[in-house]
Write a protein that binds this DNA or RNA. Structure first.
Lengths: 210, 210
DNA sequence: CTGTTTGTTGCACAATCGTGCAGCAAACAT
DNA sequence: ATGTTTGCTGCACGATTGTGCAACAAACAG
């Protein structure tokens, strides 16, 4: 019984970093940012708490990485359908709405993570940059949909109009996502998607029966 | 020189509580929730840090009080114009939009406070109740405006329709408030109000020139 | 002027935080 | 087998946190 039970497993830096990031997000989702201490996170990941500092220079660095990781993931979940050009425009809008306003994107856990990070944005340049990238990325992904929707009905689709409508659509989805994640029993997913579809169609001038 | 310079001033419990609450909000706005320690808050208020526990059983209690206080104030700033029935409906909508999407309601400081508290909502029943009260209060204040707007153009204003449009309008304002507070240089107040007015009018079916 | 009330201070306490560092051991080359 | 690399552990450190408690003093009644 010499080495029958190794005391720990060595992982590649990339893999271990991802494990730590995901453990961070789970802890924040479950107990909030203030509970996301290096000790709690490493316990969640099943490693010694001093390991974190071997893969991340400071705890702040881990937070940046986790925020960026989470936002990238959410954006992908929300938008992957929107870029599928083979489907009709109204379908793509509807699918994007559904993906954005139901779990796992819209959820108490997701909200908890988002809110925990968002409060760092006003004071932290790196956090702010991550937010800007995410926000503009989402809006930019919306614009082709909007252009197409406007053109389909012969409406003018100049850049200024499209951008303003993208801001509006983004705001609707943001607001509904927020309230739906906060009060899921009061605003269940099907309710949110109904309101969102109606509103987006009204903004875009699409017929509700499209 | 016996009592020429009293070491401190005694205040009424109500007044002192309010001072501490406002100091709490200032600290959170300036440095974030994590910096809102009892020592930092009492320094901001100019009192000994142990005084907080004389007026609030725990620090959590102070946080509840501060959240409730802040939300009540913001709601009043946003909605005070909406209830003035002597003005035309389109004017009231416009004024409500302006009040909600410009300072001090929409601001980095306001966002910081809001985000700091919002992350406590999913885990804390009392925080959640404060949020529900605020959210429903805002939505309920919106509903008369919507009913009136629909009736003015002869559209059906059944409760279900009104509620759904209230949810939608609230989401638009929430979303724009959020992004405007986060990225004021990218989305200045006049930009937000333009988008909001256009969008709300589209939801309500009002003519843009109203 | 004296006594009472209670708002207020000052200090100490245990708990918990992020970080620093020396040494162990798993994986791999030789 | 043996040596090297480096992912990983274990522990201790100073700083900071919310809280508990005894003493002080401002305001007021008599």
């Amino acid at each position: 019984m010499s080495d029958s039970k190794p005391k720990f497993r060595r992982e590649s830096p990339e893999h271990r970093r991802e494990q730590l990031i995901e453990a961070t997000l789970r802890v924040i989702a479950r107990k909030g940012v203030s509970a996301a201490t290096v000790r709690e996170i490493s316990a969640e990941a099943g490693v010694a708490f001093s390991l974190i500092r071997h893969h991340f220079r400071t705890k702040e660095d881990l937070m940046y990485a986790a925020y960026s990781y989470h936002m990238r993931k959410m954006a992908h979940l929300s938008l992957s359908s929107a870029t599928d050009v083979s489907r009709p425009i109204a379908d793509r809008v509807r699918q994007c709405v559904r993906d954005t306003l139901s779990a796992p994107v819209a959820s108490g856990e997701g909200l908890q993570i988002w809110a925990g990070f968002i409060q760092m944005v006003p004071h932290d340049a790196r956090m702010k940059q991550i937010h800007i990238d995410t926000y503009l990325g989402f809006r930019d992904a919306l614009e082709p949909l909007i252009t197409e929707a406007l053109r389909a009905q012969g409406a003018p689709a100049d850049p200024k109009t499209v951008e303003e409508k993208a801001i509006a659509c983004n705001a609707v989805l943001d607001g509904l996502w927020l309230e739906g994640s906060m009060l899921p029993e009061m605003l269940p997913a099907h309710r949110l998607t109904d309101v969102a579809e109606t509103t987006l169609f009204a903004i875009l001038g699409l017929s509700p029966t499209d």
